[in-house]
Design a protein around this nucleic acid. Sequence first.
DNA 1: GTCTATATACGGATAGAC
DNA 2: GTCTATCCGTATATAGAC
Lengths: 208, 208
Amino acid sequence: MAKKDSKILDKSTEEKIKSAARLLFQQKGFAATRTRDIAQESGINLALLNYYFRSKEKLFELIMMEALTGFFAVLKSVINDSNSSFEDKLDLLVETYITRLLVNEDIPMFILSEIRSNPKALLKVINAERLMIDSVFIHQLQKQIEAGVYKPIHPNHFLMNFMGLTVFPFVAKPMILHLGDGNETEFRKHLEERKRLIPIWIKALLNT
Amino acid sequence: MAKKDSKILDKSTEEKIKSAARLLFQQKGFAATRTRDIAQESGINLALLNYYFRSKEKLFELIMMEALTGFFAVLKSVINDSNSSFEDKLDLLVETYITRLLVNEDIPMFILSEIRSNPKALLKVINAERLMIDSVFIHQLQKQIEAGVYKPIHPNHFLMNFMGLTVFPFVAKPMILHLGDGNETEFRKHLEERKRLIPIWIKALLNT
DNA sequence: GTCTATATACGGATAGAC
DNA sequence: GTCTATCCGTATATAGAC
């Protein structure tokens, strides 16, 4: 934001450090990541890390903040749009998230595992609690249930099912590859298929 | 195994250390856990940790090994039992895992996040790859599909759906509590309900 | 087996030259 | 802004008395 007027496309030092930090923090978590490794990975010197970001912790908070806001930006914009139907939102959410996660597979594990050690981090970014449960999305679901389109279900179950089907494969990828017959490419192919399948499945669950 | 002849029920020092280590490693992961904290938590002295387990790493490997074998013991015994039907296995697996995880909620996150940094750890314990995909359980599913009882589905999708619905809530608990209306007790109540619901849902998916 | 004291290494952070 | 050299706290591990 500050010094982004540079006409050159080369990443600034600051950006190089952030990229490396993102990579390492997301792969290994805060505690297992060494600032020295971040420095090396970004091709700069260790001292510059502190010069730009003051401390490992500050740098981490920045990365986590950006990951969280990025992750929830989509969600927030979609689930409270009153111009689209429940079914539209369902399609859009699944499609958008799987697409994004396929280019950045480590995000869910990163967020979930780090939040476990520091749950307050969530509060800063998603100031609104009950973000999902109070959304237009869920209200529309309840309308549909009242109208008899779907069978009754508790919103929390719906939430668990929806997220479970969509993001769990990314969290459990190593295990799934090991238990199943999967190689990397098979895995990605299945995830692509799930963009289409999950909305269908979710509706099936809502009719059961 | 070695010195378990003690007639006293008090936990041995070795066992006290292991309990504390289990607690801390599972909550915070390997890198964020300090051996000093394990010592303090178990009420013994730091030196004893190395006396019994040689190093932090060795202790961790032991804890992880036990977690993995515990986690997969159930799975292995159930999925290759040829005397029970596909549907029986489904019920039993969901019931067993939710029950166990409700008393030890950190296990899935612990396994999944540590495996990410060290995927080879899996190989040691689950020497058999394709454990799931080559099981009687999955073969029975395919028989049912051939018989027209269920619609075709790729085993990997089935695996992702099954695990996603069952274990994801435990992995994402903090997020789910935050996004939903959940307090701790609601959460547990929903998980109890899911013992009954998930098998029904899975069958619904298999008919879609 | 259990403790206190300590060796040793490592990782985060800064001083200061350029 | 960027580097090298270094400080200093902390964490693992061990020595050695009891």
